[in-house]
Design a protein around this nucleic acid. Structure first.
Lengths: 112, 112
DNA sequence: TCAATATTTCCATATTTCTAGAATTATAGT
DNA sequence: ACTATAATTCTAGAAATATGGAAATATTGA
């Protein structure tokens, strides 16, 4: 996953409704959950939710499978893993220790 | 960090310019880098960059310290750590194994 | 065939974000 | 005091996002 793709995925998770939907799906497990169930859980209008789910599917955060009338949404764990790996590399580059450590707070003052 | 704060931080990282700036700062290390240096590296207009940096500072992704005329931006490693922890919990909830595993791809078909 | 259900697509509107030039502020050096 | 430098704030237009009602689509079961 390249820089642009990472940014796009993070942007999708960076919306409270979408993040809530994704969290719900992850909790639901590998089988995911149908749109209607998500809708009942989050309590947002169907058209709004549909729009958000479509966006997440577009960047690969979730997958959507049709079972007759219902559309089941499945979280793409691997996608999130990749995202986390990217962030972790960002976090640890430039840091001395293998594990991430806190920056030294020198004697400079914070801005007001 | 609560749901809203996580979404806000992810949204900030979900922009290519800001993600690039953050990556640059992380690579720069604990001492961070002055705005002008970031500007030269990314090659975007000063006012645009200033706007993006201010946004990142607002959600706590970076800190800004003034040294005479220059403003040094420092990445908040701890903040990113917290973000990653949150995502990791999301990822592993509902999954059987301790480590994150891939979802079973059942016999259902993907949407067109 | 008809009604009900699940969901999307269409549409319009409101809001936010992005962008960058111009003006402004703050500070250092001369 | 003056000039150069570093960065922000102001401003405003363009683009993208968010929202939700209404209509459309697909599918099931009677």
């Amino acid at each position: 996953m390249d820089h642009e793709a990472v940014a796009a995925s993070l942007a999708e998770l960076g919306n409270t409704h979408r993040l809530a939907a994704f969290r719900f799906l992850v909790k639901a497990g590998h089988n995911g959950a149908p749109v209607g169930e998500i809708q009942k859980a989050l309590g947002i209008p169907a058209s709004t939710l549909s729009h958000h789910l479509a966006r997440m599917a577009k960047v690969g955060l979730i997958r959507q499978k049709k079972h007759s009338r219902t559309i089941v949404c499945i979280p793409e764990y691997q996608h999130l893993e990749t995202l986390i790996s990217f962030l972790r590399e960002e976090c640890c580059v430039g840091v001395q220790t293998a594990e991430c450590s806190l920056p030294d707070t020198e004697g400079t003052k914070d801005l007001p």
